[in-house]
Structure formats: C-alpha cells, structure tokens
C-alpha cells in the first residue's frame, strides 16, 4: 500500500480539538521545535516542511520518531509518515500516516488529527498511541490558549 492508497481505507483514529488561536499559530506549534518541546513530552520537532522532505522528533537520547513530509499546505494541511525509532523492537514496523487539518472557525480553529495504520502493528504500540495522542492534543490546546502546557509525564516504553 502506498501513501496515497491509504486514504481509500478509513482512518484508525480521528481526534478533534478546538483551539482559540490562528491557523498559523497552530501550524507553528505543530512544526517548530521550540513549541513542541513545551507540550509534546519535551520532544523537539525538526523538518523542512515541504513535500518529500524528512522530519524528526528529538528527545534527550536522539531521534524518537521520524518520517517523510507527504503533503504540506501551510497553515491548513500537513500529512506525514511516522516511524517510531525510540524502541529497539519498533524499528522494523511499517509507518503510520498522520494528517493534521487546521480549519478556521471564527476566533478558533478546529484541529483534526487522523491516523492511518495501513499495515497491522503490535497492539502495544497501537495502545500507546491511543493513550498518548489525546494527552498531546489537549496539552497543545492548553499551551496555545494559556501559555502553559498541561503537566504530562513521559510515558514509559511499551512493555
């Protein structure tokens, strides 16, 4: 399955949050390391943010996750492939596809995150994402609206 075919199958998860901020501010928060380290378990994202470029998420011990930029339409839509690199036994797993849609609605935006996982992955990684993403997105909302992220702890590696 290619990156384009995967849109034909329904996403595995869809998360939505409404944020009082401009689309550009939300875009920056998703794509700039100085923002992500405030709400995303302290990780810094780096990337060129053009189609075909690489991106990576850095923690204290190096690359935690990385992937390719598949669609880049600032400040409205970003689609990336996502490989987990931090855990030894996750390295051979097929990538997930993550898409962010940023829609302005008056003074707020609706941020929709969809995840496609075209090839099955071990349940523990799926469960890890299910716990992690809602925390990250609610922390992002809090960070942008109040300047303070929610206090969230770095999750333990999947057992």
């Amino acid at each position: 399955m290619t990156a384009n075919d995967e849109m034909m199958v329904p996403p595995d998860v869809v998360y939505v949050t409404y944020i009082r901020a401009t689309p550009q501010r939300v875009w920056d928060a998703l794509t700039k390391g100085e923002d992500t380290q405030r709400y995303f378990f302290g990780f810094r994202i780096e990337g060129e943010w053009r189609t075909g470029a690489r991106w990576a998420l850095y923690g204290d011990e190096g690359v935690h996750d990385d992937g390719e930029v598949l669609e880049c339409d600032p400040p409205r839509r970003l689609k990336i492939s996502w490989n987990v690199r931090a855990f030894e036994d996750a390295r051979g797993l097929p990538p997930a596809y993550i898409a962010y849609e940023i829609e302005p609605l008056g003074e707020t935006v609706r941020l929709t995150m969809t995840q496609h996982q075209p090839k099955p992955i071990p349940r523990k990684y799926h469960e890890g994402g299910k716990q992690g993403w809602p925390m990250i997105l609610s922390s992002l909302k809090s960070y942008l609206e109040t300047g303070a992220p929610l206090v969230i702890e770095t999750p333990a590696p999947p057992q």
């Binding site: 329904p10 996403p11 998860v13 869809v14 998360y15 939505v16 949050t17 409404y18 929709t112 969809t114 809602p134 925390m135 997105l137 609610s138 922390s139 909302k141 809090s142 929610l150 206090v151 969230i152």
Partner: peptide
C-alpha cells in the same frame, strides 16, 4: 466533540474522540 466524524463517499463514520475528556481530567 466526544464523537468525530469522517465522510467516506456517502458513508458517515463515527470515531471516539477522548480529547475533551483529557482536557477536563487534566
């Protein structure tokens, strides 16, 4: 906002959206 929807053609798919619950609990 506890359920998010995605349209596939004429089919409306419903997804559990736990983000607002996290906002409240946090």
């Amino acid at each position: 906002n506890l359920v998010a929807v995605v349209w596939r053609g004429r089919e409306k798919l419903h997804y559990l959206n736990p983000v607002p619950i996290h906002e409240i609990s946090e």
